[in-house]
């Protein structure tokens, strides 16, 4: 388990290697399109996150969460 986690950390750090790719500012338009957003619809995302959080055995992953609930 530990070695797997360590591997994942290495993969994450390797993303830095991509830093050499330079994309000029005038080429960034596509990346700014709304459909490229990490979370295209925040309210839908919030709702789904809450459902998965309360109905599945695992949670978290994309940053900070809110509070718990008494959902059962």
């Amino acid at each position: 388990m530990k070695s797997l986690l360590r591997g994942l950390v290495v993969i994450t750090l390797c993303l830095f290697v991509f830093s050499c790719s330079s994309v000029n500012p005038w080429e960034r338009g596509i990346l700014a399109k709304p459909e490229m957003a990490w979370e295209p619809d925040p309210l839908v995302g919030q709702l789904q996150e809450h459902v998965y959080f309360s109905k599945e055995g695992s949670s978290g992953g994309y940053g900070a969460g809110g509070g718990g609930c008494g959902c059962n």
Binding site: I11, L15, F16, S21, E27, I30, L31, M36, W38
Partner: peptide, 11 residues
């Protein structure tokens, strides 16, 4: 990380 003008990745 911006990978290229079509791709971004987050970890």
């Amino acid at each position: 990380q911006v990978i290229n003008k079509h791709t971004i990745i987050q970890s």
